[in-house]
Simulated assay, not measured.
Amino acid sequence: MKKGLLISLVLLLSISFSGSAFANTKDIQPKIPSSVMEISKDNTYPNPTQDLPYLQPSELAQELLDASDVPIENPDLIRLLNESSVSESPLALGYRATIFLGQWALNYESSETSTNWEYQKINTNYQDNRGGKAPLQISYKQESQKQVKGGLTADIAYSDHVKKLMLLTAMKKTNLPLSFETIIGAGTKKDQVYNIPATKLGYLYAYAPAVSEKGKVTYGEVYLVLKGNKKKIVVKNVTSQGIGAWIPVQDHASFGFHTSDRPR
């Protein structure tokens, strides 16, 4: 009896630990393959750094956010609350007001984040060594300027706000420099050398990676309700919608080297 109870306890503990380990895998940052290289210092086009800081709410804004039944993460709405002020007066007894602040994308909940390291081909370098008797070296050089754009996978209300929410979430989950647009300048180079054997053709392909972000955005009408010296945020007509986005990884390139007996 005791032996059976001990075995059951061990099985229960192992299931709990394995379940916890599995649950945490969604938060593991993606491992960058060896074929992916950072080109920020080599890029002839200086991409602006995507700076979307997590806005710190003011004391009043935090009080209002805490009072809301629906989580509010939209940095533009938080900024609006930060710029607001409500005076507290002992004469406010009996004072009531409801102020409509508009309809907003309130928050975004991520369900899946993954990385396509070969999201879009940006360059091909080619060398013909079919008549050679020794290996021929080839390295990456961007032939022409390439613009890589991401975006939402569907039309959605308040798309600019939704993109900000998704970008903030994806940057936090992946710890990668992300932007909905990145440019690789002509003449960008890397010193990495690839050897083309004699009698072969060599192709060096370069790709721009991107993150696929999928989840759910929540909308609602936001009201500031004042009653005497009390104040709170009330959210009405709450709706949710599924959405996805492709967000390029800024100043990174993935390389694929191939040799062939005949032109590809």
Rank of each mutant, 00 (worst) to 15 (best):
I72H: 00
L52M: 06
Q56W: 04
P75A: 05
L64Y: 02
D66R: 09
L60Y: 01
S40K: 13
N47A: 04
N74C: 06
A67G: 13
P57H: 04
E38I: 07
E59V: 11
L64N: 03
P57G: 00
I39F: 00
P46M: 06
L55P: 02
K31L: 15
D51S: 10
K41G: 07
D42N: 14
K31S: 14
I78P: 01
Q50P: 00
P71W: 05
D66L: 08
T49I: 12
L60W: 02
M37F: 06
L52K: 09
L60K: 03
S34Y: 15
P71A: 11
L77D: 01
V36I: 04
L65Y: 09
K41A: 15
L60G: 00
D76M: 08
L60P: 03
L55N: 00
L60E: 04
D66W: 06
P75F: 07
D66N: 12
D66C: 00
K26H: 12
K31F: 11
E38Y: 01
P46Y: 06
D42T: 10
D76N: 05
P30L: 15
L77G: 04
D66H: 07
I28S: 15
E63K: 10
D76Q: 08
P30Y: 15
Y45S: 00
L77P: 01
L55E: 01
I39E: 03
S40V: 13
D27V: 15
T44L: 14
D69A: 13
V36S: 04
S35I: 12
Q29P: 04
S40G: 05
P46L: 08
D69C: 07
P33C: 08
S68Q: 09
D42Y: 07
K26P: 03
Y54M: 10
L65R: 07
N47W: 02
Q62R: 08
K41Y: 07
K31Y: 14
S35H: 11
K41I: 12
D66K: 14
Y45D: 04
A61Q: 08
S58R: 03
I78D: 03
P71S: 09
L77S: 01
K41M: 10
Y54T: 11
E38S: 13
N47I: 06
D51R: 09
Q29E: 15
P30C: 14
P75W: 08
K26M: 15
V70G: 01
S68G: 07
K26W: 12
N43C: 01
V36Q: 01
P48K: 10
N43A: 01
I78Y: 02
D66G: 03
P53S: 11
Q50C: 10
D51E: 13
Q29V: 15
I39G: 02
E63L: 10
P46I: 13
I78H: 04
N74F: 06
I32T: 07
P48L: 14
L55S: 01
L64I: 05
I72G: 01
P30G: 13
A67W: 11
L52H: 06
M37E: 13
